[in-house]
């Protein structure tokens, strides 16, 4: 299935994962892998189970069946905070920044995982990536605009210096130009720092252009995968997920 990923063992490998909400099955046996240094995107219709997969990787809800291997180790039984401590960070769906804390404090919370080892340095780095956050350092998180909150969520996630960054719809609700900037930041982090990224997106065109590889999820199952270019060229993908297809 994956072509490039065969070269070295994947950083994240998901095998036959099934997740339930009560009795309702949300993931029906998902296989997916992300190699170190790759950008992998996951696209699919509303309710396909993309966010569920992200959260399952993070251990809440838990996978009822299957394996989640991170760096060769099965993490499907670990608690969420233990998974985070392995170097996985996420900007979850709905951003989930701390609304009553300042921007600065939100960023501190992100860095608390590695005990502020590189705090000042990393703060400068995210301020370069998102100058907007620097201007608003003392503003309360909850009063930021939607786009600024999105930037904060991503910035907070990278403050912990993760090996694997998972982003759930980072372009949601953003002006097209800002969405492009966010994609640029992701590409930048990947190219310059070798950060591995798993990206869930509704903006399939932008995501597939950015990603090395992509997966298409339908009703809790992966139905297609391939390089970004390959998927963009597929008529089914064009019909279902790209505007030009209708």
């Amino acid at each position: 299935m994956s072509i490039e990923a065969n070269a070295k063992p994947p950083l994240l490998e998901i095998k036959g994962v099934k997740t339930y909400y009560g009795n309702i099955i949300a993931l029906k046996g998902v296989d997916l892998s992300v190699a170190e240094g790759e950008i992998v995107t996951l696209i699919g219709a509303n309710g396909a189970g993309k966010s569920t997969l992200m959260m399952t990787i993070f251990g809440s809800p838990r996978a009822r069946e299957g394996q989640i291997l991170y760096d060769g180790r099965n993490i499907s039984k670990l608690a969420t905070h233990e998974i985070a401590r392995l170097g996985i960070a996420q900007s979850p769906e709905g951003r989930r920044i701390f609304p009553r804390m300042s921007v600065y404090e939100n960023l501190q919370m992100g860095a608390s995982l590695n005990k502020f080892a590189h705090f000042t340095e990393d703060l400068e780095r995210v301020y370069v990536l998102f100058p907007r956050l620097k201007d608003r350092a003392t503003q309360r998180g909850g009063t930021l605009s939607g786009g600024e909150q999105q930037m904060l969520a991503i910035a907070r996630a990278i403050m912990s210096r993760p090996r694997l960054l998972m982003l759930d719809e980072p372009s949601l609700g953003l002006a097209p130009l800002i969405a492009l900037q966010i994609f640029d930041v992701i590409r930048d982090l990947n190219k310059r720092e070798g950060l591995t990224v798993l990206l869930v997106e509704q903006n399939a065109f932008g995501a597939l252009k950015l990603a090395d590889r992509g997966y298409v999820m339908v009703n809790g199952l992966i139905t297609m995968s391939g390089t970004g270019k390959e998927l963009l060229a597929r008529p089914e993908v064009q019909a279902a997920y790209l505007e030009g297809g209708h």
Partner: peptide
Amino acid sequence: GRAWEALREDEIACRSLGINT
């Protein structure tokens, strides 16, 4: 202490930042 305040704000975000809630 910071974790307390973060917990007040958002428990799920806390956990995914590595805080043992």
